[in-house]
Design a protein around this nucleic acid. Sequence first.
RNA 1: GUGGCCGUAGCUCAGUUCGGUUAGAGCACCUGGUUGUGGUCCAGGGGGUCGGGGGUUCAAAUCCCCUCGGUCACCCCA
Length: 419
Amino acid sequence: MADPIYRAPKGTHDVLWPESARRRALVGVFADVVEAAGYTELVPPMFEHVEVFRRLGDTTDVVRKEMYEFEDRGGRQIALRPEQTASIVRSFGEHRPALPWKAWYAGPNFRYERAQKGRFRQFDQVGIEALGPEDAHLDVEVIATAWRFYECLGLQKVTLLVNSLGGSEDRARYVSALHDHFSANLDSLSEDSRTTASTNPLRVLDSNRPEDADLIDSAPSMLDHLSDEAAGHFEQVKVALTSLEIPFTIQPRLVRGLDYYVRTTFEFTSEVFEAAQNAIGGGGRYDGLAEAMGAPPTPGVGFAIGVDRTLMACDAEGVFEAPDTPVDVFVVDTTGGEAALLVTDELRRSGLRADRSWGERSMKAQMRAADRSGAAMAVIIGDSERESGTLTLRDLRGDTGQESVALSSITETLLARLK
RNA sequence: GUGGCCGUAGCUCAGUUCGGUUAGAGCACCUGGUUGUGGUCCAGGGGGUCGGGGGUUCAAAUCCCCUCGGUCACCCCA
């Protein structure tokens, strides 16, 4: 293939129709689901001061090595957002809305990584964040909202994994226990995991390297290190999920890569994915994040759903196909095009979707274009119509033939025929 | 950042093992068969410096080197 001069940057791609229509439809479904639960849309900027994201934690890879950072012309240190929770919480601190505050968002994020299946440098997420209540039922509302969204798309093979990381003290005690466990057996860990074991032992639990499997299996469980308070919170979450009849699996090794999570964490994976990147959504509680951003200490919980991966899961399950959006009418004009210009304009102003063909093409060619447009009806304007001041209407879907209609009544006739 | 695989028409791919007429097919596109009428059918047509550069050779899509791109996996995450 002759290389085009320019191509989309690595890890990005153009979304052409009909996939573009499908994405828009997905966001539409999402908006319906979350707005039905009282979430309102927040549209944060796509870039922030670098410091906003640094608050997410020094050991978070997303922040440490995957951010698109640059200095703007005013000397400000800016980063394209690698996720949106930080922006939402920053926005919360800036505007101090009344609590509880429930916001949803949709839009692209940017991470400098090597692309692979289901992982891109620019990727869309939809998500919600709820700030204020510490109520375990809020955790469950957030999880349930994601679950209902997947249901609305028609997805059946989604698995919900839940875990509790405990409060910050619990977490610290657990990390130290993990550290001891791994340090005692460093030799049997993979090379990469050895360094991770000292910097961020929790992350080792996420390793996919086969050499690490045994030591991960034998590692102490987070659930044994929960305080009574955290254990109680987690218990409430499990009970409420059960009463909502949302099936879940406890995954004590579910860590997640953003360091701000405490207590409840969860992840949705697709069972039908052949790809390694099988997480289609995830989230959790981040009670310390608002404070870290300089806002009044405010607990929060939320999730992000990956649009690209969710659509891949839909593909794998054969659900949520791209909507077909053909025009209603296609105008064929062999008299030069002025008639088509006027007729399409009139039809469009009356609310009909109308397209036409271009150039001095034969009627055969124009009819072929009409057929391919998917339009239900064709309006034909040739020399004889021009002389008699009429238009010919042809049904393109069935075999009901065609009829002659006065120029002045074309719109009302079409509206009646297309009903 | 590390490793595996792959780059031939707009798309999906033959051809590369063992170098040898003018590089093919299907789909898509255009024109005609049908001087006004689509979808089926038939005929014809346009479109490729075989990702790019260098090398070996009488001769390279085919062999060698470099490079760019894609893809999959690790890391990490959606």
